[in-house]
Design a protein around this nucleic acid. Structure first.
Lengths: 110, 110
DNA sequence: ATTGGGTATCGATGAGTGTCAACATAGACG
DNA sequence: CGTCTATGTTGACACTCATCGATACCCAAT
């Protein structure tokens, strides 16, 4: 399902007052990254050779398997990761729009 | 007392697997930005002329005054904002290290 | 069809969070 | 002093969340 990939959005955070709408969209993205387990999962996917990683490659983060699955789902729902099943394994990769969205939001040069 | 300003930290999120320690530090920062009200407060401070804003300038975000104060405290504790009282008013500004920390974490070179 | 390993969902639980009304504090000014 | 305005703190409540064990689902191989 990967409910409404929310990421592609939003003006630079320092450019002016955020609208209620943009603030809510950005909050979804930041909330997805606000947990240490999710950050480690995301960084493992992002830094994996080939740009994608099997769950079995990244699930060693100190919590149980259901919890890993739960966090991956949240990253998916936030639009940060995409998943694809190929045979026995499920592969995750960073959603294409994320890179652009992040650097746009944090356009920190004046 | 602005408990332990946690922000200055951390390698790029895509550079490799995050350590448990770095992940926890980054999570603190993202968690502080994971609420729409806090995002709007932060952006109002960041975009305010002169680099600082009185609470009275930014407190119109749709929640009560105690709630505004509560969110500003969280942003302070996360090391994102600093505050200074001058006479009747309290002024907030973006913590100096935050800009560098953010762009370091999100070094998204294509 | 059955077995087995990889992954997702369900249900429960304890911890954490956003919100407000009420109260407290701090400074300015008479 | 007392009062007024600007912020911060406290306590309570409803709500969300991270976590796990148990279970279900998916697919390959036997």
């Amino acid at each position: 399902m990967d409910a409404g990939a929310v990421v592609p959005c939003c003006p630079p955070i320092t450019a002016g007052e955020l609208s209620q709408d943009d603030a809510e969209k950005m909050a979804v993205m930041f909330k997805a990254l606000s947990d240490p387990v999710r950050l480690r999962l995301f960084s493992k996917v992002a830094s994996h050779p080939g740009g994608e990683a099997c769950v079995c490659d990244i699930s060693d983060v100190g919590v149980s398997q259901p919890t890993v699955s739960h966090h991956l789902k949240k990253l998916r729902e936030a639009g940060l990761l995409t998943s694809e099943r190929r045979g026995t394994w499920v592969y995750y990769r960073v959603a294409p729009s994320v890179v652009a969205a992040m650097s746009a939001m944090l356009d920190l040069r004046s």
